[in-house]
C-alpha cells in the first residue's frame, strides 16, 4: 500500500489546482459579456426587479468579496438555487449524480471487457490479419462521435430489432443494467478504442521485455508469467489511461444521456444551458471538476500501489 505521507502530499496538491478551478468558474459567469440578471429575469422585468436579482445574487458587491462568498458557499455545499427547477442546486445535482456515475462505471467495465481480450489477441498475433482487423475496427471506432455510435445502436438494436429499450432508466440494479446497456455501450465502444490501442502497444512491449524472456527461460509456466509479470505491468498503463480518459468518459456520458434521454447530470447540464440557468451551470461545472480530480487522485493511488517505483518520486 502507498504510504500515508504520499497520500497526504498528493491530497495537498489538489488545493492550488482547485483554487484555480474555482476562480475560473467564478469568472466564467461574471466577466464574460452579458448580464446574468437580465438573462435570468423575465422579459418585462423592471429596473427595480433587476436590481433585486443582482442583490440576491450578490452581484452588487465588489468582485473580491463576491469571490470569497462564492468560495465559502462552495465549501459548505451551498450552490444557490436553480432558476429553471426552483430548488437548491446541491439537491438537484445529488439526486441526478448516481445515474451518471452508474452509467460511467458501467461503460468502463464494458470497455475493459471489450478492449482487454482483444488487445491480448492482437498483441499475441502482431501484424497477422487478426491484429490488422482488430486495429482497423477500433480505428473506425475512434473516428465516430459518441452520439453517432449511440444513434446507430439505437436504430439497429432498439428500434429495428427491438432487443433493448429505446431509453429510460430502471428502478432496480438489474433493471438499470438492462436499460442502460445501449448508452453504456456507446461510451464503451469509444473508450475501448482508446484503451485497446495503448494496451496492445504496452503488451507487445512487456511480452518482449527482458524479464519476461528470463521468466520463460527459467521455465515458469505461461500462466504464471501472464498473471505475475505481463498482466500486472499491462494493468499499470491501463489504469493510467483509464484515469486520464475520465474527462472523455464524462464528455461521453453527457452526450449519451442526451441521445438516450437519461436523467443524469450530463443532460441536466444541457437543459441548464438552454434555460440560461447560471447557478445550475456553475454548480454542474464544479461537480464535473470534482469528479475528475477525485478520479485523478484515485488513479495516482492505484498506480503507486501497482507500481512501487512511482512511490519514491
Amino acid at each position: 500500500m502507498p504510504s500515508l505521507s504520499y497520500l497526504v502530499a498528493r491530497l495537498l496538491q489538489i488545493i492550488p489546482t482547485f483554487l484555480l478551478v474555482m476562480i475560473f468558474i467564478f469568472l466564467l459567469v461574471r466577466l464574460l459579456p452579458g448580464d446574468p440578471a437580465i438573462a435570468m429575469a423575465e422579459a418585462k422585468a423592471t429596473d427595480a426587479q433587476l436590481e433585486q436579482i443582482r442583490h440576491n445574487l450578490g452581484l452588487d458587491q465588489p468582485l473580491p468579496v463576491q469571490f470569497l462568498v462564492f468560495v465559502k458557499n462552495t465549501l459548505t455545499g451551498e450552490l444557490g438555487r436553480s432558476i429553471m427547477l426552483k430548488a437548491p442546486v446541491t439537491e438537484i445535482i445529488l439526486a441526478r449524480l448516481p445515474t451518471t456515475i452508474f452509467l460511467a462505471l458501467y461503460s468502463v467495465v464494458l470497455a475493459i471487457f471489450l478492449a482487454g481480450p482483444l488487445a491480448f489477441l492482437a498483441a499475441s498475433r502482431v501484424n497477422t490479419p487478426v491484429d490488422v482487423a482488430i486495429r482497423g475496427v477500433f480505428q473506425l471506432g475512434l473516428s465516430m462521435p459518441v452520439f453517432y455510435i449511440g444513434l446507430l445502436l439505437l436504430t439497429v438494436l432498439a428500434a429495428q430489432l427491438r432487443w433493448f429499450p429505446v431509453g429510460g432508466y430502471g428502478k432496480t440494479f438489474l433493471a438499470n443494467l438492462y436499460h442502460l446497456i445501449l448508452p453504456a455501450l456507446s461510451v464503451a465502444l469509444y473508450t475501448s478504442a482508446i484503451i485497446l490501442r495503448n494496451l496492445r502497444a504496452s503488451l507487445i512491449e512487456v511480452l518482449d521485455a527482458d524479464y519476461v524472456q528470463f521468466a520463460r527461460a527459467k521455465g515458469l509456466s505461461p500462466r504464471i508469467i501472464m498473471t505475475r509479470h505481463v498482466l500486472r505491468n499491462a494493468l499499470v498503463s491501463t489504469v493510467t489511461l483509464l484515469g486520464l480518459s475520465i474527462g472523455n468518459l464524462m464528455s461521453g456520458t453527457l452526450v449519451t444521456e442526451t441521445v438516450f434521454a437519461i436523467p443524469g447530470v450530463g443532460r441536466l447540464m444541457l437543459e441548464a444551458i438552454f434555460a440560461r440557468d447560471y447557478p445550475l451551470i456553475q454548480g454542474l461545472t464544479l461537480t464535473f471538476a470534482v469528479l475528475v480530480s477525485v478520479v485523478f487522485l484515485l488513479t495516482d493511488v492505484v498506480q503507486s500501489w501497482l507500481d512501487p517505483r512511482l512511490r519514491q518520486s
Partner: peptide
C-alpha cells in the same frame, strides 16, 4: 486546473 474539467463540459 484546465485538464480537471472534461473537455466537452
Amino acid at each position: 486546473a484546465i485538464i480537471t474539467f472534461p473537455f466537452l463540459v
